[in-house]
Computed example of a mutant assay.
Amino acid sequence: MVTMRLTVLGCSGSVGGPGAACSGYLLTVAGEQPVLMDCGPGVLGELQRVADPNEVAVVLSHLHADHCLDLPAMLVWRRYAPTPATGRAPLYGPPGTPLRIGAASAEIPGDVDDITDTFATHDWVDGEEVQLGGMSILPRRMNHPPATFGLRITGPQGQVIAYSADTGACDELIDLAAGADIFLCEASWTHAPADRPADLHLSGIEAGEAATKAGARSLALTHIAPWTSTEDVLAEARSTFAGPVDVVRSGQVFDLAP
């Protein structure tokens, strides 16, 4: 029996909260390379509690600051820690990832740090699976600017985690989460369509509706901003999804057995 583990390192939406890192999740299968999924501000510090930053592969859903901008700090760790990393870590992300992270890491404004000494970079291709860390990762383009990819992660014995990343409602989200054991879904705000920009984020109502349409087995809400009522988002999701629903928290661990 091979278990796939999801560890929540950070889950605060848009910005960090008090004692809460932005988006970051560790995916692990025994005997395989750990995979860090998103790396927002504060995530590197939380990662150190459970894994060696020199040993992880990295996958990014998109290039908004709250999902990727602790990677420059990881570059420092991998280059200059007393035991530097050996070899390059896989880094998958949207097109433009090396430029985005390199610009943030550069010492001089306008320069771009060459991150390829540390990372072997690859662009996501919508619908094209990647094998990494003993798992199969399927990227699907979501309804969110800039280019954003939700990720469907299948474990070695068929366990499925679907990660919405950031998205508005779309058919691709339903396909991504179809039958998932855990649907890790953003719910950035409460449901007030007249006051919310379209094609950007989900409410608790919409997250629950997506889980119902997808036939997900459970719904794990994430990416709730510090200024949004967690209780209200949770109540909304429970009103539109009959299965188990919870709000994730930093340090939470989900073990998915076959």
Rank of each mutant, 00 (worst) to 15 (best):
P197N: 07
N54V: 07
W124C: 11
F254C: 08
A178R: 15
I115T: 04
G215E: 03
D117Y: 03
T7Q: 08
R141Y: 10
P145Q: 09
A225S: 14
A225C: 15
T118A: 12
T7L: 07
S23A: 14
A120C: 00
W189D: 15
A169I: 08
A65H: 05
P145A: 13
F241P: 05
S12W: 08
W227I: 01
T83A: 15
V248T: 15
S105R: 14
A216N: 01
L47H: 08
M1F: 12
G42Y: 06
D195Q: 11
L138I: 04
Q159H: 06
H62W: 11
E55T: 14
L91D: 08
R196G: 03
M37R: 10
L75E: 06
T154D: 11
S218G: 12
D111M: 12
S61C: 14
V130Q: 07
L75M: 14
P145D: 14
P34K: 07
G40T: 04
P146D: 04
A192N: 08
N54I: 01
M4F: 12
E209Q: 13
G204V: 02
G243D: 06
R141G: 09
P146S: 04
A242W: 00
D166E: 13
V248C: 07
V253K: 02
A169T: 06
L256W: 11
T121H: 00
W227K: 00
A242C: 10
V245M: 08
G31Q: 02
A216T: 10
R249S: 09
D123I: 06
R152G: 01
A120E: 15
F254M: 03
M37S: 12
L71I: 15
E172H: 05
G215S: 10
A235F: 03
P109A: 10
S105Q: 08
P226Q: 07
